[in-house]
Simulated scan of single mutants.
Amino acid sequence: MSKLFNNYTHSFFAYLQIEKNSSVHTMKNYRDDLEQFFVFMNEQHIEKLSDVTHQDARLYLTTLHEKKMARASVSRKISSLRGFYRFLMREDIVNENPFLIVHRPKGTKKLPSFFYEEEMEELFETVQETDPLSIRNKALLELMYGTGIRVSECTGLTLEDVDFHLGVILVRGKGGKERYVPFGSFAAEAVQSYVELSRLNLMKNSNHKVLFVNYRGEPLTVRGIRHILTGLIEKASLSGKIHPHMLRHTFATHLLNNGADMRTVQELLGHASLTSTQMYTHVTKEHLQKTYMNHHPRA
């Protein structure tokens, strides 16, 4: 990144971290997006951020399309630059935001992938053994499916975050927001068994309070959970690929299919906006249509 922009970007990332409480992943995306735009500025011989015009912004959008980038990636990059210039205006570094009226491409809506209840039963059948890792995997599967928490939220759980008496976990979500999420008897029994029978065995010489650990007693990572779930789906002989977010999608879809209201699901998932939760209505409508076609005598 050019030295010319170091002071501005340093202040911007401090703003994102302190005021916006952005995640590490979000900060990395912003950094990548800004660096790519600065390369464009050098190619166009634009020396100052204040010299970027609306025409330059549109030209940059065109170059992104010419590189055959996905719509979602292009949209994010424009959003990043719009936010960066909004910050520069707030700091009186520039007078206008050239990306303000650049239209972001609308991404194609993909229905969230989820497991049917029968498939979940098959997954649970793979974790019925009594060795320490199977006990841990069962607790992991039950808790993620039973609460719908994000995989990053799961890796951040500590022993103190689990309240077996009240049947809730304290979850630290995006932007440092905290919420309490209830869990049922299946998850409670599985996690309690893991804590009492398996975790101490796995900890060995480690000493920390992170709930889920690997075979060396170290905190389980996002990558580690993905590896565990991939192993379970292969063991269950289910088709397709699994990613940790599928359990979150499954949690929400099964709740809505069984009559839960949208606002409750939104709160349980920790969505800031109801719009994020509404994507699951497409899945539940598909489920209703399939049920109707299979069971109504005049379908």
Rank of each mutant, 00 (worst) to 15 (best):
137 N>W: 04
139 A>C: 08
141 L>C: 10
141 L>Y: 04
141 L>H: 04
143 L>S: 06
144 M>I: 13
145 Y>D: 07
145 Y>I: 02
148 G>F: 02
148 G>E: 04
149 I>E: 02
151 V>K: 05
152 S>F: 09
155 T>N: 02
155 T>L: 01
156 G>V: 07
156 G>A: 11
157 L>A: 02
157 L>N: 01
159 L>M: 14
159 L>D: 05
160 E>K: 14
161 D>L: 00
162 V>L: 03
163 D>V: 01
163 D>W: 04
165 H>A: 13
165 H>V: 15
165 H>G: 07
168 V>I: 14
169 I>M: 04
169 I>A: 07
169 I>F: 03
169 I>W: 01
170 L>R: 15
170 L>G: 05
173 G>H: 10
178 E>T: 05
181 V>L: 06
181 V>G: 04
181 V>D: 06
181 V>Q: 05
185 S>T: 15
185 S>D: 13
189 E>T: 10
189 E>S: 11
190 A>R: 02
191 V>D: 01
192 Q>V: 00
193 S>E: 13
194 Y>W: 09
197 L>Y: 02
197 L>I: 00
199 R>Q: 04
201 N>E: 13
203 M>A: 11
205 N>S: 12
205 N>Q: 12
207 N>A: 14
208 H>C: 00
209 K>I: 00
211 L>D: 07
212 F>M: 06
213 V>T: 08
214 N>T: 11
215 Y>R: 14
215 Y>M: 06
216 R>V: 02
217 G>R: 10
219 P>D: 12
220 L>C: 11
220 L>M: 15
220 L>V: 05
221 T>K: 12
221 T>Y: 09
224 G>Q: 12
224 G>E: 13
226 R>G: 05
226 R>M: 01
227 H>M: 14
229 L>S: 05
230 T>G: 15
230 T>V: 06
230 T>Y: 04
232 L>W: 05
233 I>Y: 06
236 A>C: 11
238 L>W: 10
239 S>Y: 09
239 S>C: 02
240 G>K: 12
241 K>I: 01
241 K>H: 15
241 K>C: 01
242 I>D: 06
245 H>Y: 06
245 H>M: 08
247 L>D: 10
248 R>A: 08
248 R>Q: 07
